[in-house]
């Protein structure tokens, strides 16, 4: 244990001063609304715990919870898989792929466009009759009749997950590469000399050393993923069609607040979501931490 050093407070003081000034009031106000019936104007009426009782029996919220996980899970697996694969390629000294700067910039392009433009674009591309996705697949002979992508729960969820992957794999890749850049080249050179193959280098050097960055990716993606809403809102009717399969937790929150004027209940959804995020982040932290210990032990051997 290092000795305590008060100087740390100076460094974090500006952050917390600003943080408490601008973020705390809105957050606490929202928390207060969870105990009220509030329509977004006038005086909130105090309700006690009614909103919490309601949310525990709300089948729409349960549906939203499941949908969010399905969409996020598929997206995250794909996105991380692609990004890790790319990171492995670019960190491999042996193949020595050129043009990292170029590819990194190009892969990040989809993330530059605002989400509403993305939604407009894919709305047109996924159109049942006129969409280029169906035209393309038909021409290649992969499907024999057009698929109504946004009208079936499974294809709708998969579409959203794939669009998200398209938007975010570049981001994850950039973040991973920033972590890779922090790893000293000496490790790789040593591995090369020891005759470790590509796979071994990646598993035993890159991955363990990327652990802190991986934790960052996991946690931020979890937070962002659980708050997924603009794409599902913009792609179909904004109510979660088809069959409620695009009804995510924050879309539900948004509709309760801004469509139906149930601010108090929407605030309750926000805090339930907060709780869920905290729990799952905790689990992620714990499991990453345990793995880290295991690797360290192995390293000592």
């Amino acid at each position: 244990m290092k000795k305590l050093d008060y100087k740390g407070y100076y460094f974090i003081a500006p952050f917390f001063a600003i943080f408490l000034t601008f973020n705390l009031y809105p957050v606490l106000l929202t928390f207060y609304y969870t105990f009220t019936h509030y329509e977004g104007y006038g005086e909130p009426q105090f309700l006690g715990l009614d909103n919490y009782v309601r949310i525990l029996t709300d089948s729409y919220f349960l549906e939203a919870f499941i949908n969010t996980w399905q969409i996020w899970g598929l997206n995250f697996a794909l996105q991380l898989g692609i990004a890790l694969f790319l990171a492995a390629l670019f960190s491999d000294l042996r193949i020595n792929i050129k043009g990292l700067g170029f590819f990194r910039a190009i892969f990040y392009l989809p993330n530059l466009i605002t989400i509403s433009s993305v939604a407009i674009l894919f709305n047109i591309m996924l159109d049942w009759h006129y969409g280029s996705v169906n035209q393309f697949l038909l021409k290649l002979g992969i499907i024999s009749e057009p698929i109504n992508w946004l009208n079936q729960p499974f294809t709708a969820q998969a579409s959203v997950a794939l669009i998200l992957t398209w938007m975010w794999f570049g981001y994850t890749f950039i973040v991973l590469m920033a972590g890779v850049a922090g790893i000293s080249k000496e490790y790789y050179e040593a591995a090369l000399i020891d005759g470790a193959n590509r796979w071994q280098t990646f598993i035993y050097i890159t991955l363990p050393l990327l652990k802190p960055i991986m934790l960052y990716i996991m946690i931020t993606s979890l937070i962002g993923g659980l708050q997924l809403f603009d794409l599902p809102m913009l792609l179909t009717d904004g109510l979660g069609s088809p069959d409620g399969s695009l009804n995510t937790m924050v879309l539900y929150l948004y509709n309760q607040a801004f469509r139906y004027g149930n601010y108090g209940y929407a605030a309750t959804i926000a805090y339930m979501l907060f709780l869920i995020t905290v729990i799952f982040s905790g689990i992620t932290f714990k499991s990453m931490y345990r793995e880290a210990k295991v690797t360290k032990k192995r390293g000592n051997k």
């Binding site: 009759h129 006129y130 169906n134 035209q135 057009p146």
Partner: peptide, 11 residues
């Protein structure tokens, strides 16, 4: 609005 459209197979 402006003429014939492909029906149920507009690809």
């Amino acid at each position: 609005m402006d003429g014939p459209v492909a029906y149920n197979g507009g690809w």
